[in-house]
Design a protein around this nucleic acid. Structure first.
Lengths: 199, 199
DNA sequence: ATTAACAAACAGGCTGCATGTATGCAAGAG
DNA sequence: CTCTTGCATACATGCAGCCTGTTTGTTAAT
């Protein structure tokens, strides 16, 4: 805690400053929203000046972009890890969905990835971030299931987008305090109905 | 075009001013987004002063709220009209989905209802607006189908929220220039799989 | 005469930039 | 191998412009 002001290498300074800014901004964006959080407030919380902020980030939106990219990467990695050793396509999808809900339980993550991000950065840029982070495991799962015979003639890309949106909404609801179980059941029903024809 | 400055009743003035503000703001919010549109720009486009704006609306967000409420009402009414005389629950849901896509083709509506609204007004207030506008036909349809036997044990409220989100995403994609047909097919597949056990 | 419907000026705050300063660092001189 | 020298990095600070919401003043309807 007492952070002696001793000499540090430039690399360490940069890392520390960036980390402090990202942490402070993340907390404030989650608590009050991007628009209602000013840069003076952010730098105060990070114990840094506005000069440092604009040295490390192009602008206020750049700060959000960095935060969103980190969150997206974590989510993608959690899902990928969880679906690695599934036996059937349905298992993979179900476990992927559970992992997604789990990853999105991290406080504030849903708001950042599903609300502030799309509005501030734009849908297109969010899509780019998602795919760069490897956020297409859902489509992969559907393609595997398709090879198994089911889903003939259904446009998979569009279906995966829509399912993804459904999971997003569930994650948002859960983040807002709703119980997780019913959403997980609903998700399971959806996937089962699609892949097995059973509700 | 030449709008003589003749005497008008107060009621007419109010109606005209509000309409001009709503129209101008709507166009600008769609074109540049809520955050990047200033009130000076809005009143200039509406040929009114900022005094008029703050006389009729509590603040800039109030302007967006009025716009969003109008859009939501139109969407709900379109859907209700389209599903009035469906024969089976699946028909009602399918036709409702088509009507929703149709209603959301109105340029900019998707952005207002699905992006700017939730972020600026908050999720809770958007939910209130939705339900006040009668946006729960989807849940009604699922309940009807449930009575028919299918969907036993599936949490309907959550399922309807998730399906609704799926349709939202499709509408957003279509608004962004994507072709409508594949999304409609995916939507149909989803509903059929749930209600009939067929993909 | 009273109130609605504006108009216009004002106060506070915020963003991005531009300029100034100190510190780390790499390379050459000695 | 050390030390100086020059440059780049990492900030700090003040300024300019804009924007929002409020307040005060004016005109027109009722």
């Amino acid at each position: 805690m007492q952070e002696k002001l001793e000499r540090r290498s430039n690399r360490d300074r940069t890392a520390a400053t960036r980390a402090a800014l990202l942490k402070a901004a993340r907390a404030l964006f989650i608590e009050k929203g991007y628009a209602d959080t000013g840069t003076p407030e952010i730098v105060a919380a990070a114990k840094v000046t506005r000069g440092a902020l604009y040295h490390h980030f192009s602008d206020k939106a750049g700060l959000l972009r960095a935060i969103v990219e980190a969150e997206a990467k974590e989510v993608a990695s959690t899902i990928e890890h969880a679906t690695r050793d599934a036996e059937t396509p349905l298992d993979a999808l179900t476990e992927g969905a559970d992992a997604y809900f789990e990853a999105m339980r991290t406080p504030g993550r849903a708001r950042l990835l599903l609300l502030e991000g799309p509005v501030v950065l734009g849908i297109d840029e969010m899509a780019a971030i998602d795919s760069a982070s490897g956020g297409q495991t859902l489509l992969d799962g559907l393609r595997l299931a398709d090879r198994d015979g089911r889903l003939a003639g259904v446009p998979l890309k569009q279906l995966s987008e829509m399912l993804s949106a459904a999971f997003d909404r569930a994650a948002l609801a859960i983040a807002g305090g709703a119980r997780e179980a019913p959403y997980r059941d609903a998700a399971r029903s959806l996937l089962k109905a699609l892949l097995l024809g059973k509700t």
